[in-house]
């Protein structure tokens, strides 16, 4: 890891006054995806849809009502339902945590290692630096979602071929149509995670303890879920990002109801704006 740390500023220093953005982004991606923990987490995420798919198939073949998470009864042999269902389970806690871990490494982790100082004095604008860091976090989040979606879909295909793809409304889909719906789900979940990542980056900019970022996101997630369960606070619910997350199964309906999904995307965009502006403020005022 120290080798990469030394490597990152070198191309930047050799550039004239401003380093080309593409090269910065590439360097950040190399830096993020060479971390063993990123790779281990992505590998473990791939196991979730496989194990959920197997347990759904076992529950399906044995008689009796299957008790499980939402969409569980549809998951056996249905790659689309398995992917979207696993995303619906993991978006509640696991995927936000993965995003938070990446955000924690991005700024707080660098300042804990003392490497942020070097980046701050490098001839890269601080907003630009934040942009590069945010890009890294966004890529990790998107990869996490893609890993789950692709393994889930493949597990379904292996288990029962391309015939088992049907929606909650009972319509059978061709592989192309199913992949289209899956792409919508992946994009939608990624945007939600970017919102979590933006807020986590803001926390990350204000502290030099990476642990605090993860704890902050975990606590926020749980708190929002608790507030969302209190009907007396229904006026507050539209402000909670966790409220959008139960809309994900709508992707599996046919025709797809877009109302809740659009609202969730807009809500996530608001969180992204808030998170990035707070993080930007801190980056600009940080002592070099």
């Amino acid at each position: 890891m120290t080798a990469t740390t030394a490597e990152t500023p070198t191309p930047v220093a050799s550039a004239a006054r401003r380093a080309p953005l593409i090269r910065l982004l590439r360097a950040e991606l190399r830096w993020v995806f060479r971390r063993p923990r990123t790779l281990v987490v992505l590998g473990l995420l791939a196991l979730i849809p496989i194990s959920v798919g197997i347990s759904a198939a076992i529950a399906d073949s044995s008689a009796g009502a299957a008790e499980g998470p939402p969409l569980f009864s549809m998951m056996a042999g249905n790659g689309l339902a398995l992917s979207v269902g696993t995303l619906a389970i993991t978006i509640m806690l696991l995927l936000p945590l993965v995003t938070a871990m990446s955000s924690a490494d991005a700024i707080a982790g660098e300042s804990a290692h003392g490497t942020l100082r070097g980046l701050l004095v490098a001839p890269v604008g601080r907003i630009r630096l934040l942009g590069v860091k945010a890009f890294g976090v966004a890529c990790v989040a998107l990869c996490a979602v893609l890993v789950i979606a692709v393994t889930g879909f493949l597990t379904g295909l292996v288990m029962s071929g391309p015939d088992g793809l049907f929606t909650i409304s009972g319509t059978t889909l061709s592989i192309g149509a199913a992949l289209g719906k899956l792409a919508v789900a992946v994009g939608w979940v990624a945007v939600q995670l970017w919102a979590v990542g933006a807020v986590a980056l803001a926390i990350s900019a204000y502290t030099e303890h990476p642990m605090l970022v993860v704890v902050g996101v975990l606590a926020g997630d749980i708190l929002f879920a608790v507030l969302g369960g209190l009907s007396a606070l229904s006026w507050l619910h539209p402000f909670l990002i966790t409220e959008s997350w139960s809309a994900l199964p709508d992707v599996l309906r046919d025709p797809m109801p877009t109302e809740a999904l659009t609202e969730g995307t807009l809500r996530a965009a608001c969180y992204i704006i808030i998170g990035l502006s707070l993080a930007g403020a801190r980056m600009l005022t940080k002592d070099g």
Binding site: P238, F239, C270, Y271, S277, L278, G280
Partner: peptide
């Protein structure tokens, strides 16, 4: 930062 945060909160309110 204040302007950005305010815009975000207003957006949430509109939703």
């Amino acid at each position: 930062a204040t302007a950005g945060t305010a815009a975000g909160v207003v957006g949430l309110g509109l939703i």
